[in-house]
């Protein structure tokens, strides 16, 4: 299918292509198009945050303004959701936000690869976050961290059910966090691809070519919408990270 008509195949864009085969101790570590775009994301973030701030100007230039805006955006996000104690996780949350945001953004450029459209990537992030929450919670509060699952002021009769629900909701967090980002990216890119295929199909279908601009207008609108989604999903991912970390910092409800 994809071999026959890759232009028409909306799934084709998610294929992993090996650029340089590599194996470490029998484990596949090939440099793929996904790895390439992870390196691109790393380069873009490093350029913005390190080259952009190298001048250390009191009156910032454009790039430094952008870097400062990113810094203050994430810093205020953490302060609002997790308080000043949450600033200990600032580098982690900042890195997560920037990685997800630039992955989403770079993926919107045609012919690129969207790293966050791979479930394993988003799941790796959410699993790391939940393990961090659990690890920090038990390290900081010991067994008191388990009070997270026991809300105060609940009648003893209902308590077992409430605790069960709390545990299930906590366990669902890594899944919902990773699937939300993955699903948004996947669906957005498939939609764009399908609209693009409509344009090509209509343009090559005789008199129907007159209708071809309609899906093209749709692509323009969808691209604008996807830009919003790219930022919004990075924001949601980062702010939920803050909220979950807040549970580890302040486990009492």
């Amino acid at each position: 299918m994809s071999e026959a008509a890759p232009v028409m195949d909306p799934i084709h864009q998610f294929h992993i292509k090996v650029l340089a085969p590599l194996s470490i101790g029998g484990v596949d570590a090939s440099f793929t198009n996904a790895s390439l775009f992870m390196v691109v994301i790393l380069a873009v973030i490093a350029f913005l945050m390190i080259v952009g701030t190298s001048g250390e100007h009191i009156i910032p230039n454009r790039l430094q303004t952008l870097a400062e805006m990113a810094y203050e955006f994430v810093a205020s996000m953490i302060r609002q959701t997790a308080g000043d104690a949450g600033m200990r996780f600032f580098p982690f949350v900042f890195s997560v936000f920037m990685f997800v945001f630039f992955s989403n953004l770079i993926g919107l450029i045609p012919y690129t690869f969207t790293v966050t459209s791979q479930i394993i990537v988003t799941f790796a992030f959410s699993a790391t976050i939940i393990l961090l929450v659990l690890g920090y919670g038990f390290y900081k509060h010991g067994t008191h961290f388990l009070r997270l699952f026991v809300p105060s002021g609940v009648s003893p009769l209902l308590l077992p059910f409430i605790v069960l629900i709390e545990i299930i909701s906590f366990a669902a967090r890594p899944i919902s966090l990773s699937v939300r980002l993955f699903g948004n990216m996947l669906a957005g890119h498939i939609t764009l691809k399908i609209f693009g295929a409509f344009v090509v199909m209509l343009a090559g279908a005789g008199a129907y070519a007159l209708l071809a601009p309609l899906p093209f207008i749709g692509i323009i609108l969808l691209t604008a919408f996807e830009l919003l989604v790219a930022f919004l999903q990075a924001y949601v991912f980062a702010i939920l990270t803050c909220v979950y970390l807040n549970d580890a910092i302040h486990p009492g409800h």
Partner: peptide, 19 residues
């Protein structure tokens, strides 16, 4: 496996450079 390894490398580098 390949994606996790490269994600660990690149995200680790980003975390190191940022922090």
């Amino acid at each position: 496996a390949a994606e996790l390894i490269w994600l660990a490398i690149t995200f680790g580098a980003i975390y190191f450079l940022m922090s």
